[in-house]
Design a protein around this nucleic acid. Structure first.
Lengths: 134, 134, 134, 134
DNA sequence: GTGGTCTAGACCACA
DNA sequence: GTGGTCTAGACCACA
């Protein structure tokens, strides 16, 4: 299972959002456990070679969202209660994502089956099934 | 069939890119036919309530990509030759999209099957008409 | 009616929060109208003699909360739909505030009537009744 | 009557201040009586799950303010003489609190009467017992 | 012109 | 040690 965070400074997606999404993903996938610690702002900034302020922004957003909790002077931790989205909103978010992806495939002129297969392949690679793409 | 373009000024995606993607989609789905006309920059800017410069930028990129052709003094038209992406780039783009979507689903904690089903559903809703590009 | 924002850099309350609260207050009191513009980040930073980043933080939080909307390249505006809190939460927030104030008064040993009178006086002064405290 | 102290580590108010205010309140409300004992630093730290240094800081401020007195080798006690604030400072503190509460109510868009009523209600709930300090 | 991102670095309260 | 705030200033996309 992947416990590390990879960011790409050249990506159009802001670094702070890459960090935010990365941590959300590690929490959702169980790599970071409720109550467990998260690297300190300074440590993660050093590891990723980014400015501490950039990490601070990501962590603060995650704290506002209830994913992380801060204990002052001690550090930052994964919240005990995972802040699952309300079911309705979860579905809405997923549908928007599916629509965006399907729309992209149609624009590219990709066939139905290939479109679906690529999603299966992506899910497998995220779930750590070995290989997947020879 | 949808012949209109919907943009969301509050979306993080730049407006010019929303227009570019929208036109590509209308072409790929057959709503705009090869050789047919495309709204003038002024008209589209007025319709969408955006700055004309923003439409110009989208049209220029589409012209550079061979999706549109400009006939001076006449207007802008959909290119006769469908500007299919090189196969390698097409695959890469699709895979990035699949990865983004799969990653979203994992973050939301959605099950594998539901993730795949939503894509099928999205494809069906986009393909009320079969095909689009013979 | 007060249209200006006063901040106190020596206050224990962070400047960005003073700005956030100040703008919320101006909106709630009607001094800033839905759809109307809000000073640009640079202008407000100059007016208040603070760093633009500090204003950015306040504006972004207000945007996240739906109080302001950003039109890229144009500026920042008061949202059309005022983002009134759900009634239940509004009541809860008010009650917490009342409890904090009442608790303070009890701690200070202030009589019931004086405690209530000070609130009335504060409300009057916020609503612009002239004088109020001779 | 409430003899316990509740602190919220996630609150923006420093823990030492929450403890300080809490003790002041217990004294003012009569829950802790002049001459009576106060929990030892170690006990309170353990009860509240906070760092002993944090309790030390609160107790020192309370001692400096004359609310508590330390008898070396015996422990910490509530002072015999009630340490009423100078009248001017009392009034200033109360006014600040009233202003903060009134400002919150305006921001929430609450009507004048409801704002005042909530304070009365809060005072009643705190004064299940009449008075507290004759 | 507008807002958004990021760096570099200082200073602070807190535990 | 921890995170929070703020400054100064650069660079960028967007309209």
């Amino acid at each position: 299972m992947n416990r590390t965070l990879a960011i790409d400074p050249k990506d159009a997606v802001p670094i702070w959002r890459q960090i935010e999404e990365g941590v959300r993903h590690l929490v959702a996938s169980g790599a970071l456990r409720p109550g467990g610690t998260v690297p300190s702002v300074r440590d993660m900034a050093r590891d990723l070679s980014v400015n501490p302020n950039t990490v601070v922004k990501a962590y603060q957003r995650l704290t506002d969202a209830g994913v992380l909790v801060v204990k002052r002077g001690e550090g930052t931790f994964v919240a005990d209660a995972p802040p699952a989205l309300p079911r309705a909103e979860r579905t809405r978010t997923l549908r928007e994502g599916a629509m965006r992806y399907a729309s992209l495939a149609v624009t590219l002129g990709v066939a139905h089956d290939e479109t679906v297969d690529e999603v299966k392949r992506a899910l497998d690679s995220l779930n750590g099934r070995k290989g997947g793409r020879p």
